[in-house]
C-alpha cells in the first residue's frame, strides 16, 4: 500500500486517487480469489452479517424514513405548482425508488455506518501488529479479514437497502396521504415499474455493498501510524466509499439506461 501525502496539491491528489484506485482493485481481485480459494473460519461470516445488519438496520430505517418523507413532500409541492395532479405521484416515486434512490441514496448513510466500522476495526489491527501476526500464522488478511466482511456487506447491505427502500416507500405514502390527500390505493401504483427496474436496483444494491466493503477494507489495511492513522483511515473509508458509490451509480445508471428497458418517466 502506498503512503499518502497529507494536504496534497491538485497533482498529488490526482496521483493519490489513481494509486487508491489501483490498490482498491488489487484488494478486490484478491478478495475474489479468496472468495473461492480461502479458508473460512467457522461462524465468522454469520458474525459479520449479524454485526453489519444488526448495527445498521435501525439507523438505516430512520434515515430512509426521513429521506422518503422529504422526497415525497418536495415532489408534492412542485407537482401542486405545475400539474395540480397527484394521481401518478406514487407510480413515479416507486419507479425512482426501485431503479435508483433506495440503493444509491441508501448506500451513502450505509457507507458511513458500515465503512467506518470496517476501516476502524482493520486499521486498529494493523497498528497493533495483529495483521502482521495473521500473516505470520499463514492467514492472509484479505482471506481472514476482508472476505467475511465482503460477503456480509454484499448480503446484508442488499437486505438493508431493500428494507430501507420499503421504509422510504412507506414514509412517502404517509406524507402523500397526510400532506396532499393522496389515498394509499392511488399511491400504490405499479404501472411504471417493470422487472428491469427491479433488476437494476438489485444489482446496484449488490455492487454498493461490495464497494463499501472493499474500499473500507483497503483503507483499513493501508493504515499507517498509531491512533491518528486509524482516524485518517476511517475518514478516508467513508469518503472513498461514498465516492465509489457515486461513480458506480453513474456507470450503472448509464448502462442501465441503454440496456434495461424502461416504461414511463426516467
Amino acid at each position: 500500500m502506498a503512503a499518502r501525502t497529507k494536504d496534497p496539491s491538485i497533482i498529488d491528489a490526482a496521483k493519490n486517487v489513481v494509486t487508491d484506485a489501483r490498490d482498491v482493485f488489487r484488494v478486490f481481485a484478491r478478495t475474489l480469489y479468496y472468495l473461492f480459494r480461502g479458508k473460512r473460519e467457522k461462524g465468522e461470516v454469520a458474525r459479520q452479517m449479524f454485526a453489519i445488519g444488526n448495527e445498521s438496520l435501525f439507523f438505516m430505517c430512520i434515515t430512509m424514513a426521513f429521506i422518503g418523507a422529504i422526497i415525497t413532500f418536495q415532489t408534492g409541492l412542485q407537482s401542486r405548482k405545475l400539474l395540480p395532479d397527484f394521481s401518478l405521484m406514487g407510480a413515479t416515486y416507486l419507479k425512482l425508488l426501485v431503479r435508483d434512490l433506495a440503493a444509491s441514496v441508501g448506500a451513502l448513510p450505509l457507507a458511513t455506518r458500515v465503512g467506518a466500522g470496517i476501516a476502524a476495526e482493520i486499521g486498529s489491527m494493523v497498528v497493533t501488529d495483529q495483521v502482521d501476526a495473521l500473516r505470520m500464522c499463514a492467514a492472509d488478511p484479505i482471506d481472514y479479514l476482508v472476505v467475511p466482511r465482503f460477503i456480509a456487506c454484499v448480503v446484508m447491505g442488499t437486505v438493508i437497502l431493500i428494507i430501507g427502500g420499503f421504509v422510504a416507500y412507506g414514509s412517502g405514502l404517509l406524507v402523500a396521504n397526510l400532506a396532499f390527500d393522496v389515498t394509499p390505493s392511488t399511491f400504490n401504483n405499479l404501472m411504471y415499474l417493470n422487472l428491469g427496474d427491479v433488476a437494476l436496483g438489485f444489482f446496484k444494491c449488490l455492487t454498493y455493498g461490495a464497494a463499501i466493503a472493499v474500499v473500507s477494507a483497503q483503507r483499513g489495511l493501508a493504515t499507517f501510524g498509531g491512533s491518528e492513522g486509524v482516524g485518517w483511515a476511517t475518514t478516508e473509508a467513508v469518503v472513498g466509499s461514498s465516492f465509489a458509490i457515486i461513480v458506480l451509480n453513474l456507470i450503472i445508471s448509464t448502462f442501465g439506461y441503454f440496456l434495461v428497458p424502461s416504461v414511463g418517466p426516467g
Partner: peptide, 12 residues
Amino acid sequence: RKSIGMLFQNYA
C-alpha cells in the same frame, strides 16, 4: 513463513 514464528513487541 510456515517455518518462522514471531513474538511481537506489543503482543499482537
